[in-house]
Design a binder for these strands. Structure first.
Lengths: 347, 347
DNA sequence: ATTAGCACTCCAAACGATTGAGTGCTAACA
DNA sequence: TGTTAGCACTCAATCGTTTGGAGTGCTAAT
């Protein structure tokens, strides 16, 4: 950071900036003559060449081959994102209207968000449902289904509903079921999923007496249904990556698309923390991303929060020469909107 | 059909068969010399050429260009599927073990089926959940969530659970809720969704008195949650299409992959009827498919049935030169297995 | 009716020449 | 000492040419 300032003088920075902006716009290696005209530095192409030579030596740009122009390296992009990129002025951000229909189901909202973002940016997107760990239990209900099965319904604070069928050996009578219902609700209501520990479970089991196995079953169900394994991921615009030649060669494209189909890998993009920055936006460039098949991509993620520590992640995956300004602007606006939606709607 | 028999003599049929088999195996236009060696007809390439010329005139095969070999036309494939293709002997079919883990959730099973089939065939697959229309209601339960919302849980015969939050203006007391529960259950249990008509609804509303709006709400919920719009489709192996050069050029591939991402279009593959054949297997070749983006593909669908008219569809989408025998064999075996799973497990 | 033989067609791969954008270096200049 | 004009050089991309081979259609002979 300070090293950057020492390494690069004002003029080099200007030139680097011009190279990257040009490359982002055109997608083609940019030469010295272009920069000479493009900037207000009034320098000849020869001078620019010298400077570019330096920049290459320092690792900010590189040449695809000897007689081509320069393209930014990962280090170059990183410098751009950290120091050069201008946040768009607020008015522009405010202007952009995301039309998110209010709907009952959170699932529908998140799908919509993914789609909208994909359409807006022309990159691939993913949205995770918020993790349930900090969510509190509103109520639990066991009901009869038939002789051998009972249905457990768990409702969380933000009206997320989970249900699970539990097999029992011998039939339960209504009274017992009622007792169990009361037991579970008085014991668990208001607790967040994190707060349920072994002691809580042991106590409940003891109170359930001979039906402790059912309590165990319910707890397992809870754990399983709400575990990280179950983390829902909604994606959209995966096919957008075919629009970028540097990603659309057969092998790379197949791997990337497969990652989107088989969402498993995407989970590693869910950032555990809000990251060190105040915005909650994280940029991974090339090798920096945790997913190996995305080495030639950049990934921008944002963490949204629904209060009470209930967090989800939004991610945008595109080529390294993605329009970082636009992407981050989009993410910021969206975050605001999401907060609005969930505040009001409480679904 | 009879026309076919008139149009083609024994020898032409043998040659056509050889051409198609060869093309399916290699994916490259096949020439007269190859056929001359390949068949047991002991004919010179020249003779074959004459026959091929006839076959082309009749529309069963075509030349990509003047000096290339022949490839099957849609008509050729159709003839192959209808008359030439051999069903694999049962023993082989029996051998193939599909390892479907038994799980509680139907959703998980169907996802697995799609994946398994995609892995086995190297084509793209889709599986729809069975339609709910013929499914019967097992029980309905309304519960309090808070002052303004109640939760409706509907359980269907095969343990499919649907839930929906309903907003109410004024709070309901427990007693009323209990009454409504009894009312709904006595009025609707055992009915299939098709059997619920306006008269049923009107009667229920009348009985509900001042709370008729809630009944209406529940019915709307039912209708909405179970409507065709809600038809779930699980896909797998979409990226497999990139393996076939004739489908993987940029534009075609994008369209196809987009169709798989945006599953809407796939709904038109759900065949309304078991089709005229006894097997319930339907083959669409090229133009025959109802989806325009799949003009260069073949689609094979099978309808599986869970008894009581509850039907779902399995589809395989691949290049026209797909391995029809293998695909259909897979589908048949799978159908059997599915029946087994759902019979036992009743999920 | 079948086949050998031959001329012809056309794609695909290989090759080479050309082009043009871009570089690095050197020598002159302010 | 920093800047610039000029020039030779490099290299991917493009295009036309060539060549080889697979395959056809036709004809004449069997």
């Amino acid at each position: 950071m300070n090293k950057d300032k020492i390494e690069l003088d004002e003029r080099k920075i200007k030139i680097l900036d011009a190279i990257i902006r040009n490359y982002l716009a055109t997608g083609e290696p940019v030469g010295s003559r272009t920069i000479s005209k493009f900037t207000d530095l009034n320098l000849s192409s020869a001078t620019i060449r010298n400077e570019m030579s330096d920049l290459e030596e320092l690792g900010y740009i590189l040449q695809p081959h000897t007689s081509a122009g320069r393209i930014p390296s990962d280090k170059g992009y990183r410098f751009y994102v950290d120091h050069l990129m201008q946040e768009k002025d607020r008015e522009v951000a405010e202007m952009k209207e995301f039309v998110i229909e209010k709907t009952e189901k959170m699932e529908a909202v998140l799908k919509q968000v993914a789609k909208l973002l994909a359409n807006n940016t022309n990159y691939a997107t993913m949205v995770t449902a918020p993790s349930y760990h900090h969510n509190k239990i509103k109520f639990i209900q066991l009901s009869h289904m038939d002789e051998e099965q009972i249905l457990a319904v768990v409702v969380l604070n933000n009206n997320i509903v989970k249900n699970q069928v539990i097999n029992v050996e011998e039939p339960l009578d209504n009274e017992t079921l009622l007792k169990l219902n009361i037991l579970l609700n008085s014991g668990l209501n208001g607790l967040s999923l994190q707060e349920i520990n072994l002691a809580t479970i042991a106590r409940l089991k003891e109170q359930a007496g001979i039906h402790s196995s059912i309590v165990g079953n319910v707890m397992d169900t809870l754990a399983q249904a709400l575990s990280e394994e179950d983390l829902q991921i909604y994606t959209s615009g995966a096919t957008n990556i075919l629009k970028y030649p540097e990603l659309s060669d057969s092998e790379r494209a197949t791997n990337l698309l497969a990652a989107f189909e088989e969402k498993e890998e995407l989970k590693s993009l869910v950032s555990e923390t809000l990251s060190d920055e105040e915005t909650g936006i994280q940029v991974y460039i090339g090798n920096e991303t945790p997913i190996s098949t995305m080495q030639d991509c950049s990934v921008v993620t944002a963490t949204y929060e629904l209060g009470e520590g209930v967090k989800g992640t939004i991610g945008i995956i595109g080529p390294k020469r993605m329009d970082y300004e636009n992407v981050m602007d989009n993410l910021k606006t969206l975050k605001k909107q999401l907060d609005g939606i969930f505040d009001k709607d409480k679904t």
